[in-house]
Simulated scan of single mutants.
Amino acid sequence: MQIQHRQAERHVLTVIVDNEAGILAKIAGLFTARGYNIDSLTVADITEDHATSRITVVTNGPPPVIDQIIAQLERLVPVHKVVDLTDEGPHVERELALVKVAGHGDHRVEALRLADVFRASVVDTTTSSFVFELTGAPEKIDRFIALMRELGLVEVGRTGIVGMMRGAQGI
């Protein structure tokens, strides 16, 4: 008898919740208590009356584990809806990063040239450093950071992933 091992898959989950104290801790606690890893976590208020928030969680696991995570999230009282963007179909993922690079001479010129190629904006500059703002897919940001390491990378701040389905329909 042959045993098949199911490959862990990356999933982007969007969770619509009541904007109340402790909800983020409940969701993070659900993952922690069951040994599930969170690769990225973002949360923001999404309604004019500040009553509802959207939490985006990126996690990994085989399909049965992802199904279990979704079922457990749906059982939490302040959760209105859970959508697995990965399973739903084509979606857009974006992340914002601030990247500080220090350098002089050719390194400084090359950092500016690469920032232009990646469409990063200079949001702060001194005579010895730049802070670049970059938005895009996580892979794009990873590539930019890797290149900046060779030119004097000092610090990186990343927001985490936000995702949304393509097309006119909302979740």
Rank of each mutant, 00 (worst) to 15 (best):
2 Q>L: 12
2 Q>E: 14
7 Q>N: 15
9 E>K: 12
10 R>L: 08
12 V>F: 15
16 I>C: 11
19 N>K: 06
19 N>C: 08
19 N>A: 05
20 E>G: 10
22 G>Y: 01
24 L>R: 15
24 L>H: 10
24 L>Q: 14
31 F>R: 03
31 F>Y: 12
33 A>Q: 05
33 A>V: 01
36 Y>K: 13
38 I>R: 11
43 V>N: 15
44 A>R: 15
44 A>C: 15
45 D>E: 14
46 I>R: 01
47 T>N: 00
51 A>L: 04
55 I>E: 02
55 I>C: 03
55 I>K: 01
57 V>Q: 02
57 V>A: 07
60 N>L: 14
62 P>G: 11
62 P>W: 09
63 P>T: 00
66 I>D: 11
68 Q>F: 02
70 I>H: 13
75 R>C: 04
75 R>P: 00
76 L>D: 10
77 V>T: 14
78 P>S: 04
78 P>D: 05
78 P>W: 05
79 V>M: 13
79 V>S: 14
80 H>C: 06
83 V>W: 07
84 D>L: 00
85 L>G: 08
86 T>N: 14
87 D>F: 14
87 D>N: 14
88 E>H: 09
89 G>P: 09
92 V>H: 13
92 V>Q: 09
93 E>F: 08
93 E>H: 12
95 E>Q: 09
96 L>H: 10
97 A>K: 03
100 K>N: 10
100 K>R: 11
101 V>A: 09
102 A>E: 15
104 H>K: 07
104 H>S: 06
105 G>Q: 08
108 R>M: 05
110 E>M: 08
110 E>V: 03
112 L>M: 11
116 D>F: 03
118 F>V: 04
118 F>N: 08
118 F>Q: 09
119 R>L: 02
119 R>C: 04
122 V>A: 13
125 T>F: 09
126 T>G: 07
127 T>P: 13
129 S>M: 07
130 F>H: 03
132 F>W: 10
134 L>N: 02
137 A>L: 03
139 E>W: 00
140 K>R: 07
141 I>G: 11
141 I>E: 09
143 R>C: 00
143 R>A: 02
144 F>N: 02
145 I>Q: 13
146 A>P: 01
149 R>A: 04
152 G>E: 11
152 G>K: 08
155 E>K: 06
156 V>E: 01
156 V>L: 00
157 G>R: 04
158 R>Q: 13
162 V>R: 14
164 M>P: 00
165 M>R: 10
165 M>H: 10
166 R>N: 05
169 Q>F: 01
